[in-house]
């Protein structure tokens, strides 16, 4: 059953992202929101982990949360798809379940 995995914690502050990436099956997707969007930065040391996961899973990031944190779209990891709030809602309808990694 395809799941939309939602991560809202900084990858430096909690291990939510690592747990999510370890346990997300192919066919599911990951959405980064709130402090989770720091993991979308291409220059961050977490980028390799996210890039590896993206070989199997689509990764999305919430644009308003990137903008709030001063992360410009051109500094985001190539292949991460940016969504607005409407896109967030649409994603929740496209997947059978959502799982928030608090």
């Amino acid at each position: 059953m395809p799941i939309l995995h939602i991560v809202n914690k900084s990858p430096f502050e909690r291990n939510s992202l690592d747990s999510c990436l370890r346990l997300a099956l192919n066919g599911s997707a990951v959405l980064l929101i709130e402090d989770g969007v720091y993991a979308a930065s291409r220059k961050s040391t977490t980028a390799a982990r996210v890039g590896e996961a993206m070989q199997n899973l689509p990764v999305y990031a919430l644009q308003p949360d990137l903008q709030a944190r001063g992360i410009a779209p051109d500094t985001v990891i190539d292949g991460i798809q940016l969504v607005d709030y409407d896109g967030f809602v649409k994603l929740t309808t496209e997947y059978e379940k959502t799982q928030s990694w608090l």
């Binding site: 900084s10 430096f12 502050e13 402090d35 720091y38 644009q63 308003p64 949360d65 903008q67 709030a68 944190r69 001063g70 992360i71 410009a72 607005d84």
Partner: peptide, 22 residues
């Protein structure tokens, strides 16, 4: 740690509806 993010340039909270205190 993540405190360094407080000082990043170009923070704009207009789309998340919180005070932009940067």
């Amino acid at each position: 740690d993540d405190g360094v993010y407080q000082l990043l340039q170009n923070q704009d909270t207009s789309a998340i509806g919180t005070k932009n205190f940067a």
